[in-house]
Design a protein around this nucleic acid. Structure first.
Lengths: 200, 200
DNA sequence: GTCTATATCCAGATAGAC
DNA sequence: GTCTATCTGGATATAGAC
């Protein structure tokens, strides 16, 4: 009996993941308001009403996606900061990994795009706004700290560290947007271009 | 009589401009679907129904804004290319002017944001999609040509010219997004950071 | 030109059969 | 668990008074 329960729960979780993944693309590309529950249901292969067996509302799905997106991004940023390598290497690795992830995984780029759009928008659920307010500055702060370290040891250029961190993340977001907009036609740019803002 | 007609037309045009400017902020920030005609009417200071004396539909306003945004952007890009200065200077001027415009004019940043969001979205009017398809690549192509020129005379770094042009525009778009999201709290980053991707 | 009232449509969410 | 049918609310667009 416990077996069946576990199996059921697992199938339910898989279904939820499937819905979330489909919803991510639609929300990131078209936004919350322009995405219909019936769109999500259709590309997930079942009826409109069934969505409500897995989620309480459209806003719930959106909020869950925002939560996941920040969870992953900020976890990665914290792990990056802890790496036992010099600061210059951390920036290099971050840029490389971000570019590689954009190339490999459309969902990764979509997740960044979702965050970007949700951050500017007023028309999102209250709960999502709270998550953004709490989590949005974390990657920025971490990159700033790493940059300051790298400037102390002279391995990172002496621009204003806040400016550098700002340009780091805005450039990455811009790239995510482009990747999401152009899909398969997207070609990852040479990582050395972005790196030349930080290193001589 | 002709006097009165001209005056009426002028007032009408001013009113249209006012509506467009208010709509720009709402569309850029919240998107087409999440923006209600009544929102636009309210911040413009009149009733919901009156919008329809100036525009045929919500989609019409959106399309007009897209048309204007590309009109200005692509005009500026073409003027840039014609400037009687070396290619290296053109890139420098472009970056300077873009950063300065973001700082001075919120509408300028919003206009870039509108283009960025409309480019990724499927949920926009057909007519707007056509404009995007026709105009979207123009700035990219112009910057690519300028970069190639600058690489010939050795004044611009020898990265792949398409990659450089891509990073140029995605970085600018990322900055526009950030400017639009953070409004008055936005501080323009040191232009030399972005320039160091292009110049030694 | 401007407003109020309303027709119409559409999408989110629910109920209930299977 | 899944579907179909339906309730309900809200937004676009129109009509008509002033």
């Amino acid at each position: 009996m416990a077996r069946n329960k576990d199996l059921n729960k697992q199938m339910r979780d898989e279904r939820r993941e499937q819905i979330l993944s489909n919803a991510l693309r639609l929300f990131a590309v078209n936004g919350l308001a322009a995405t219909k529950i019936s769109d999500i249901a259709t590309i997930s292969g079942f009826s409109q009403g069934l969505i409500y067996h897995y989620f309480r509302s459209k806003e719930d799905i959106f909020t869950e996606l925002i939560r996941e997106a920040f969870g992953k991004l900020n976890h990665a940023a914290r792990e990056l900061e802890k790496l036992p390598v010099p600061p210059r290497e951390k920036i290099k690795i971050a840029l490389e990994e971000l570019l590689k992830s954009f190339e490999k995984s459309e969902n990764f780029a979509l997740s960044h795009l979702l965050i970007a759009q949700a951050t500017v928008s007023d028309a999102i659920p209250k709960e999502a706004k709270k998550i953004i307010a709490a989590e949005n500055m974390v990657p920025y702060e971490i990159i700033t700290r790493i940059i300051i370290e790298g400037q102390k040891d002279g391995s990172i250029k002496q621009f204003d560290s806040n400016d550098l961190a700002l340009v780091f993340w805005t450039s990455v977001k811009g790239l995510a947007m482009h990747r999401a907009a152009h899909g398969k036609k997207y070609k990852t740019p040479d990582k050395n271009i972005l790196m030349s803002m930080f290193f001589t």
